[in-house]
Design a protein around this nucleic acid. Structure first.
Lengths: 241, 241
DNA sequence: GAGTTTTGATGTCTGCACACATCGGTGTCA
DNA sequence: TGACACCGATGTGTGCAGACATCAAAACTC
């Protein structure tokens, strides 16, 4: 199952740039890329255009295609995130996503309590209960699935399309947690109850209670994960101008 | 100062899609676009590739270039945001950004208090004081400039590249506020002090105080703006699968 | 209605002309 | 002689035109 050629070119170059194999400032020539990847100019040009829109490269006449520093990359682009998760920066990317998530979810819970459509509220309660059951029984795969569904519903119910868009990335962090063995066999009982609390608060439209319970979940999650991150270097993006 | 042709093609199509002039499901043919925009095939193809990576269109053989629904768009892409701000959905976009910002900034303040480099902390304090002065004197343009700089420094100081990347969009919401006449001539005195509180808490590494003060600012900002948004329809992105 | 053929649009490749930033040589002036 | 401004050569991206390949929708056959 191989996508189009230009898609493969994007993958190839994107992966190598994000991994650091092609460092910032490195200059590539379109012609070189043609025979390196054994594709035609049009394929390279289309790929470069996409990478350009992601902030990974810039083109200059008479110079070539220049790799840009990480501070110029679009950190919200799903492809960039995927490439970073597949690179040495996986830990830093997971931390960034977790921090974003822990900031957004309580806000999303608050908004969902105010705005979510009724059916979504009911589904959220159902999922929270099913989640608690699966957690208590130690059914880890089913628990993970329900966990992802719960948080997806929560973000979606906020009615903020940016929050909702984080669903995909959230799934990554949750599954990534299990891969790293950060998920206990039996999820914390209090945490399970907090999920139910969030759902029920949203169901009855209690915004501050929803935020509060969601905040508890996030604080616990962050403190769980923060231990493994202390060695990840932080990058400070300079404020331009 | 006109950018490259493909850039203009991206602008043209992106604007028309986001504005709704080209609705979801609408099908375009590359050949039609060529003479409509009076450019060659390669220009159209490169533009379509970029729009594809933004989730605005998809291409299907034997069918053409299909416009995708808003739920498929990447809501974090700066171009998409800019196009939405220029469309009828400007209000909804500003609300989304403000909600995101009010969720992220207190978290960023907390992180900055823990991680920001020393020079940045000092600069933050300076800016906060200058901001208070400018605000008390009613120097609105200078205040706005400092306001943007303050929040940029804050997000940058978090050491989370996703937070830092929101700087540009934040500037939009702040300037957008003045355009909409939502900015009083004399900023609220308490709010000015809260900015100083945030900066000083970060300077002395008091994470919870920094979050608290930042949260006050955000809550006040949100309550100020929320009145003008009540009529903006919310869009709920369905959770796929 | 299942399988096959036709068809039409995107996907890929190539040769060419042009724009233009960079570099190096040339000329001028002190 | 040396410093500096000018200017043309060179190389690389940008844009154009046309050909063929591919492949899935649609039409057709049985």
């Amino acid at each position: 199952m191989t996508r189009s050629l230009h898609h493969r070119a994007i993958e190839n170059l994107g992966t190598r740039i994000v991994s650091g194999e092609l460092p910032a400032g490195h200059i590539m020539l379109a012609e070189k890329l043609e025979d390196e990847l054994s594709v035609s100019r049009s394929v390279i040009r289309e790929a470069v255009r996409v990478l350009q829109s992601l902030g990974l490269v810039e083109t200059t006449k008479r110079v070539g295609i220049r790799v840009l520093p990480p501070s110029r990359w679009n950190p919200f682009d799903p492809q960039v995130i995927r490439w970073r998760l597949a690179s040495d920066a996986r830990g830093a990317q997971l931390r960034s996503l977790a921090e974003l998530r822990s900031a957004v979810e309580p806000a999303a819970a608050e908004l969902a309590a105010q705005n979510a459509p009724a059916p979504l509220r009911l589904e959220l309660v159902d999922v929270a209960h099913a989640m608690r059951d699966a957690g208590n029984k130690g059914e880890v795969p089913r628990f993970l699935e329900l966990d992802i569904q719960f948080h997806s519903l929560l973000l979606s119910g906020s009615g903020n399309e940016m929050f909702a868009n984080l669903m995909g990335q959230v799934a990554e962090t949750l599954t990534g947690r299990t891969v790293h063995g950060l998920m206990p066999d039996h999820p914390h009982e209090a945490a399970l109850q907090w999920h139910v609390d969030v759902a029920e608060a949203i169901a009855r439209g209690d915004a501050s209670a929803a935020r509060e319970a969601s905040d508890k979940i996030m604080r616990r999650t962050m403190s769980q994960m923060s231990e493994t991150w202390t060695e990840q270097p932080r990058v400070f993006i300079p404020v331009h101008r």
